[in-house]
Computed example of a mutant assay.
Amino acid sequence: MNTLIWLSEYPTDKPSFDLKHFHATFFKCISWEVEETFDAINCPYHYVCDKTYPSNYSPAIDILVLIFTTASYLVTLIIFIKDMSSRRGRVFVCQSKRYLLPSGPISLPLIILAFAKGPQINTIFPLSCVGPAILHLVLISALSFDNGADKDIKYVFVATSTVSGILHASLYLDFVLLPYYTGFDALMSSTFSGQCASCVCRNEPLVVGGKLVSYRGWSMTTFLVVGVLCLRIVCKILGVNSGKVLYIKNLMEKSSWILITVDCVYLSANSPPERVMLRVAAFGGIFLLICLHVLKEAYFQICTMAYVAEKLRWASTSLQLINDGIMQETPT
């Protein structure tokens, strides 16, 4: 594998390119053209970048997206903590803070807009690096806070909007990630032919999205979360509080959390080695939310078990008192 492209200097027998322009050419390329080659042994597949995304926005746009994303994360974190400290946490979310959540009707359209312009947001806060963490923040927000106190029509409207927003966000994110991962594969699994800045020789065909990183925004994780939201709508409309539908919904929720965790672990270990500190901070924040969710569920399970044990002790004591009373009234 050709790892020399990550160094600040290149060997003298390789073309000398500006590093920033060099990376932008590969990571933002949206059209790789295969050219005829006369060296079937050393260069069976010869590729050149034919078209790239437009140039990046000014750093001010990246800063605005960074501020917005940070604020959305802090809101989610605060609501998580309040939800853990109060049994009325979900009511708190439904009544006052729902619109501030990343999956809410205000923040989610802004996230979709950022993803749609993601290839040009690529200076201080590149969405090609942190976009997956932002999508996971939206998924966690949608899973964790259910607006169950709403009336049926309002609930269905908000939940349906969230489903549509998540699907659009994941699709737009792939428009950012697929060229990024394709370029990463072209860099790491190819050798430079020297004919142009982006001309590479490969031993196998170059595929869309590459083969080195398999994560996609439009994935099983996204569809599981969407399925959970759809089942919540069904349960709300039909008034289902028990039965197979509720069991399937709870099982899908747990599976969604597992897949979100697996995605975060995979991306932390297999992402392209650039903007490492930014990526660590982004996924570190997501792991914190996952840990808080696990602690919250464990706390509620312990409280439920303690409540059931107390009820059983009370029932046992009452039954013993009744038996003692009957024994005292029985004549000898």
Rank of each mutant, 00 (worst) to 15 (best):
M1T: 12
M1V: 12
L4Y: 09
E9F: 14
Y10D: 06
Y10Q: 13
D18E: 11
K20N: 14
F22K: 04
W32N: 01
E33N: 13
A40L: 13
N42V: 08
Y45L: 08
V48S: 09
C49E: 03
D62M: 03
I67Y: 10
T69C: 09
T70W: 12
V75C: 10
I78S: 07
K82H: 11
S85L: 14
R90C: 09
V91W: 15
Y99R: 15
L108Q: 00
P109C: 07
L110S: 12
I112D: 00
G118P: 01
P119F: 04
I121K: 00
F125S: 02
L127R: 00
S128Y: 04
G131Y: 01
G131P: 02
L135I: 05
L135R: 01
I140P: 00
A142W: 01
S144V: 08
N147D: 12
N147C: 15
G148C: 13
S161L: 14
S164P: 07
I166H: 01
L167M: 08
L173M: 11
F175K: 13
F175M: 15
Y181D: 04
Y181A: 02
D185G: 08
S190F: 02
G194P: 05
C201F: 05
C201W: 05
R202L: 10
R202D: 11
V208C: 09
K211M: 09
T221P: 03
L224G: 02
V226R: 01
L231N: 04
G243R: 08
V245F: 05
Y247F: 15
K249P: 01
K254L: 08
I260C: 04
D263Q: 10
S268W: 06
E274T: 10
V276S: 11
R279P: 02
R279G: 03
V280C: 11
V280N: 14
A282I: 03
F283T: 02
G285I: 04
I286W: 02
L289E: 02
C291D: 11
H293G: 02
K296R: 13
E297I: 08
Y299E: 01
F300A: 06
I302D: 00
I302V: 12
Y307I: 00
A309P: 06
E310W: 08
R313V: 08
R313G: 10
A315N: 15
I322H: 05
N323I: 13
D324T: 10
M327Q: 14
Q328A: 15
T332K: 15
